[in-house]
Design a protein around this nucleic acid. Structure first.
Lengths: 214, 214
DNA sequence: TGTACATCAGTGAACGCGCGTTCACTGATGTAC
DNA sequence: TGTACATCAGTGAACGCGCGTTCACTGATGTAC
């Protein structure tokens, strides 16, 4: 439960402090990993005393959760936005390009996200939140794919656009793992594009073939 | 550096203690996650005093590394073995089945492995070790695919058998992420099989078509 | 196989540090007039 | 807009615990004869 649930006034100062703590925490978590970070370290990085921390959060866990929630929200909007804007006449390869560019962002976020994943894997309640975020992302992708020209050429093994979106996310997660290890973002992008192409375009490298086997 | 590097005699007792500590550590790490585990906890779980720990390891990091190394070795052999045994006339779908069954093992190992991943992501030297293990696994898979009947039907976008093996690993990693969150091993297996089929069989669900576009 | 001896491996008490947590206090912020 | 007042937010000292680390000691193990 968040400290200060009393519905009262939220001062400017408070908002600022909270944001400072979250920003500092992001940097520290990215650098050392959740579980190797103390409250003291976060406070020091943010330039506050430990008391400030306790005035805003009940525990490191709560801060971590808030941090993830905030950033994930941001990124989900970013992705949805990028996928939604352009007209309906984008073909599947173009959609693949768009998805690829927008999904692989900075390594720090991937590090924190993966920390959060293993955290969630051990706590069903947290896992549920993460699954919801993923579902939301998946929906945005399924939408985009559904509106793409030639989408009916999606391989039958994956089922509908929703199945295809699932596959996109799986490919993304798989590439993320590799990226975490070798740190090569450009290579990861190329690799993700290749995977998505193989998954979404019937292996021929083109969507010309429009037979539907559903 | 490992404690006790002196080439001298390694007593039975020592071997036993070390194994006990590693086993206990595995259970504790799986349950709480590296970074939320103290030396004290591991010793208590293993039934030894903290002195025993220091007699065998220099730090929790070293133990964690040894633990990962040991289990990864075991699993790599298991996978290689399972893929190598049967004759050369296994077609791609059958190879997919085999790979699927052998890769998704218990959740505890996936948890520890993912912990190790985020650990490695922050330490290039550790990352190198993990990359080597992955390369080894990939080679076993590429071998199997290369020897499979109908392997020449592999989609061109992925390149050769090695590229296909890369794709298999990426799919595996992607499915692992989902499995960590929902805990449904059966679903994960089905899902992995579907993904691999989509990736390796030109999307038609059969390898009958043998055109080669390399 | 048995005994004596040397070395080794694990014990557990002791020390001290880092840090989580609390709290009385003070400067900051917002409100009322 | 200015002033007085009430409440809030962050400070930093203090406390204590958990645990990392060390080490003198003792029972276990292996070896030599």
């Amino acid at each position: 439960m968040a400290a200060r649930t009393t519905g009262g006034r939220v001062t400017r100062r408070r908002v600022r402090t909270r944001a400072d703590l979250l920003d500092a925490a992001f940097a520290v978590f990215a650098a050392k990993g959740f579980g190797h970070v103390s409250i003291e370290e976060v406070c020091q990085a943010a330039g506050y005393s430990r008391g400030a921390f306790y005035s805003n959060f009940d525990s490191l866990d709560e801060l971590f959760f808030a941090l993830y929630r905030e950033r994930a929200e941001l990124i989900a909007e970013q992705v949805s936005g990028a996928l939604a804007v352009d007209g309906p006449d984008l073909d599947v390869p173009a959609a693949v390009d768009r998805v690829t560019e927008v999904l692989l962002l900075d390594r720090d976020w991937l590090l924190v996200k993966t920390d959060f994943l293993v955290h969630a894997a051990r706590d069903p309640a947290v896992a549920r939140t993460l699954l919801e975020h993923r579902a939301r992302l998946r929906r945005a992708i399924a939408d985009r794919l559904g509106r793409a020209r030639g989408h009916c050429a999606l391989p039958a093994v994956l089922g509908d656009a929703d199945g295809a979106a699932h596959a996109v996310v799986a490919a993304y997660d798989g590439v993320t793992t590799q990226l975490l290890l070798d740190g090569d973002v450009a290579r990861a992008r190329g690799w993700l594009k290749q995977l998505l192409t193989a998954l979404l375009t019937d292996g021929s490298g083109t969507t010309a073939r429009a037979e539907r086997i559903v």
